[in-house]
């Protein structure tokens, strides 16, 4: 359980986060909000990259102020928006092995974790490729594998599908779904409302460093999203017109319409 208690944070005197309370466990939580609302700043507090100015963050009882990022990286994995910002090794294998090696694991354990992580994101057989030679979706999944290999319980994904084509996006979505089934808690930072509709179990909406909404997906989509600068998914608009109520996927809508 990650517990955020009345978190305040200021960059050079400017308050970016203004009192946030949040509990996050084994679920897919979508963190949404306009640019500059504090999404990334909040996420960076969950693995200790940023420390609260006021309030506190507890990761399974560990206060982030008292632990280093390296210690917290065993619990919370953070996948940055641009995967290329982390690649530096010659091969995919070595790239994924970097994290577990930092944890001080022995070679056989490292190898086992690398194989497992690559398998989990569907990149088995890519071990000898060069990270920079992969396609967009593959790079994104490799970035997830790099973090996954450290076996964190919680994963933070910062806009994992931005800039990907439909097929690549599907591969990332499938990866996220299977990670959730394996018992990971996933925090999804995104602007893509379709993705929220499809994946999220709960949504937190930030505005000006404060929580504007925290609740289940269905309730979230009944908000006036446009007033927050967010777009209502086409699927919901269509479902409404067809009188099908709240649906989460095209299949679900098709099923209702057939009835």
């Amino acid at each position: 359980m990650i517990r955020v208690e009345s978190l305040h944070f200021a960059y050079d005197g400017r308050e970016v986060l203004r009192g946030i309370d949040l509990v996050f466990g084994e679920e897919i939580l979508a963190l949404v909000g306009p640019n500059g609302s504090g999404k990334t700043t909040l996420a960076k507090h969950l693995n200790g990259l940023l420390k609260p100015t006021r309030g506190r963050v507890l990761v399974d009882g560990m206060d982030t102020r008292e632990h280093t990022v390296a210690e917290l990286s065993r619990k919370v994995g953070y996948v940055f928006q641009n995967p290329e910002h982390m690649f530096f090794e010659e091969t995919v294998f070595k790239e994924v092995a970097f994290g577990p090696k930092n944890l001080g694991l022995d070679e056989s354990e490292v190898e086992e974790r690398v194989r497992w992580a690559l398998g989990a994101v569907g990149l088995g057989g890519f071990e000898e490729r060069t990270p920079y030679s992969l396609s967009g979706g593959e790079k994104q999944r490799l970035a997830i594998a790099c973090v996954l290999a450290m076996r964190p319980k919680y994963l933070i994904l910062d806009e994992p599908t931005t800039g990907l084509d439909w097929k690549a996006e599907r591969s990332v979505v499938e990866t996220i779904k299977s990670l959730r089934e394996d018992g990971h808690g996933i925090l999804l930072i995104t602007h893509d409302m379709d993705l929220v509709l499809e994946l999220a179990e709960r949504v937190v909406l930030l505005e000006d460093g404060k929580k504007a909404f925290d609740g289940p997906v269905e309730e979230f989509f009944s908000l006036d999203l446009e007033s927050y600068g967010l777009e209502r998914p086409e699927l919901l608009v269509l479902a409404e017109k067809l009188g099908a109520g709240f649906v989460r996927s095209v299949e679900e809508l098709a099923g209702r319409v057939k009835q």
């Binding site: 990259l49 990022v69 390296a70 990286s73 953070y78 940055f80 910002h85 982390m86 930092n102 450290m150």
Partner: peptide
């Protein structure tokens, strides 16, 4: 730096 620290680089 943030990305690599998140991968346990100290």
């Amino acid at each position: 730096m943030d990305a690599q620290r998140s991968r346990g680089l100290e």
